[in-house]
């Protein structure tokens, strides 16, 4: 691994100042589970690595206030998966966090890192999209809030400016009962990169949201405004039409060695159907529990 300058700012202002003055030659280090691989293989060659884990504003913390769950940028997957609030309100996010890598990886990989790498296969992206997350970013001109649906640009690129960093992720607690699930396809049952990663939610109002990744340059979010998918009495044919429309954005790479485009598309459809069914079941369970 090539050497670099290492900075460990202890305030957000210092971090932003470093980013602002060194910009493109820097790399932010959160969990490091991706960055350190890239430092070693030479695909990342920063002049400076900025370790953000000692910035108080980014600290690993999950708190709920006024119907919004705020997740500190450096919250690791293991904590996300185990957190009671996340599991209660955002079960699919907890599920996604629990399948990222091994225990060792989940103890290091952060929520901000997972989305800032902008890997199309990022497992937390589909649930964050489905749950309407907002990315809180800080830069030289203060902070701004970016809807997650505007965050991913393409593989490896987000809408963050070079001098901005993610401080936290906000998740609005669903106003109505919601059933949701995260599913993925991998080449083996043990930890693996997803060849399809998908999240589906259904709420009491009959709105189905579906987000999927690893089948194109960025994760995609779709919403069924017709309420057909959530309608138990709607005919299967009608549901298929809606689902097909939702998958129109998928364009899996032909170059990938992990799965062929045909297989990914077939699995996207299969997981979509399975996820929808599970989401509806979970919604019904919650209704039952409330009744």
């Amino acid at each position: 691994m090539r050497t670099f300058a290492y900075e460990r700012p202890v305030s957000l202002a210092d971090a932003v100042a470093l980013l602002d003055s060194h910009g493109p030659s820097t790399r932010l280090l959160a969990g490091g589970t991706d960055l350190i691989i890239r430092l070693r293989d030479g695909s990342a060659r920063p002049g400076m690595v900025i370790d953000v884990k000692r910035i108080p504003e980014l600290c690993p913390e999950i708190r709920e206030r006024d119907g919004v769950l705020t997740i500190g940028a450096t919250t690791v997957m293991a904590d996300l998966a185990a957190n009671g609030l996340v599991r209660r309100h955002f079960e699919a996010l907890a599920e996604a966090a629990s399948v990222v890598g091994s225990v060792q990886i989940r103890n290091r990989a952060t929520i901000a890192g997972n989305i800032c790498n902008a890997s199309p296969a990022a497992d937390t992206a589909p649930p964050l999209l489905v749950y309407g997350a907002v990315v809180v970013a800080a830069g030289p001109h203060g902070s701004r809030r970016i809807p997650i649906s505007e965050f991913f640009v393409r593989s490896g690129l987000t809408s963050l400016e070079p001098n901005e960093l993610v401080v936290a992720i906000e998740l609005p607690v669903p106003a109505s009962l919601t059933g949701a699930v995260h599913l993925r396809r991998t080449r083996r049952r043990g930890h693996d990169l997803a060849s399809v990663t998908l999240c589906c939610s259904v709420n009491e109002a009959g709105v189905t949201r579906l987000a999927y990744g690893s089948v194109g340059p960025k994760p995609v979010l779709e919403q069924d405004e017709t309420h057909v998918l959530a309608n138990p009495s709607a005919p299967d044919d009608a549901k298929q039409v809606v689902l097909e429309r939702m998958f129109a954005e998928a364009s899996p790479s032909k170059r990938s060695m992990r799965a062929s485009p045909e297989y990914r598309m077939a699995m996207l459809r299969l997981l979509g159907s399975r996820a929808m069914r599970t989401a509806i079941e979970r919604l019904a369970e919650k209704r039952g529990a409330q009744a």
Partner: peptide, 11 residues
């Protein structure tokens, strides 16, 4: 090791 897969405890 990322793309050459061998059995883990889960497989």
């Amino acid at each position: 090791a990322i793309d050459y897969r061998i059995p883990t405890t889960m497989d």
